[in-house]
Design a protein around this nucleic acid. Structure first.
Ligand SMILES: [Mn+2]
Ligand SMILES: [Mn+2]
Ligand SMILES: [Zn+2]
Ligand SMILES: [Zn+2]
Lengths: 144, 144
DNA sequence: AATCTTATTGATAATTAATTTCAATAAACA
DNA sequence: TGTTTATTGAAATTAATTATCAATAAGATT
């Protein structure tokens, strides 16, 4: 189900500002902060009110249509949410982020931690950081 | 090596405000925001300037003496850093957090993701969320 | 297609969080 | 005990987020 149908089925309107926010997120290669998203729309002559950027991100992330990704120094960025259980890996050099799938990913670890701590695990936050293929090449070049 | 020696070896001073910040973090059961930490010091008649709270957390986290933990709704809290490679599990009810050790924790997953995405993994962020033993009991009580 | 209803928007104000500035203070050391 | 200077506290500044409210437009109803 696409996000527009999802919105309207829940009684929310598919407004022009919401379309613009989703258009940016769907073509972005990296998580964007609300301010960056707003700047992008300005630059593309698709400006909307800054308050609407915050409102839209708030609504769409509450519905799971967009999701929060923590960037290297702790800033929260937003990305269009991919399908199914997944996590993100971010490039520390160019900030480009891609998803990787993860269903059975942590089950052993979780069992171990539940026994060790006696906490009951209900959710998790997992992100990987490193270098994307392109930035690996650049690093190799510099060392020649 | 304790944090005071670590600081002075690097030429930083072991000041009263820094001692107060560490005293709070070392006795806290949960990650605290800068504002919460400042409030705590106020309540205990150990007040220091708010700017000093920010400055101290900035310095000590840059040195690895304190560390950032993401709380449930995305706020960043600070905790005294434990020794060695570890992660945290947080209670979604009472916010209490404990460490669990993790050295070999993600090696398989990381191999898999490196092959799948061609990213080179250099770091990771992992936190678990759930219910601490005490809050599990309370939940069980309510359902009787 | 015109009209109605009301969710949503944009502009601005208000709030909250974080950083900067700088004279006064107090750690560390001789 | 005196000297040096990193650090502090208070206030000002900047940045980020939220609230307010009249104007607008999305979607439903004729
Ligand atoms: Mn997972
Ligand atoms: Mn680990
Ligand atoms: Zn890259
Ligand atoms: Zn608990």
């Amino acid at each position: 189900m696409n996000w527009q149908k999802q919105l309207s089925d829940l009684g929310f309107r598919v407004s022009a500002p919401r379309k613009r926010v989703m258009a940016v997120l769907e073509s972005a290669q990296q998580p964007l902060t609300p301010l960056e998203l707003h700047q992008t729309l300005l630059r593309d002559h698709k400006a909307i009110g800054l308050a609407s950027v915050y409102r839209t991100l708030g609504l769409l992330s509450a519905l799971g249509i967009v999701e929060v990704v923590y960037r290297s120094k702790g800033e929260m960025g937003y990305m269009a949410a991919a399908q199914g259980h997944h996590h993100h890996i971010l490039c520390q050099e160019c900030q480009r982020a891609v998803e990787f799938s993860g269903l059975e990913d942590l089950s052993e670890l979780i069992d171990h931690v539940e026994n060790q701590t006696h906490y009951q695990v209900r959710d998790h936050l997992l992100q990987l950081y490193g270098l994307c293929p392109e930035c690996q090449s650049k690093h190799a070049d510099e060392k020649e």
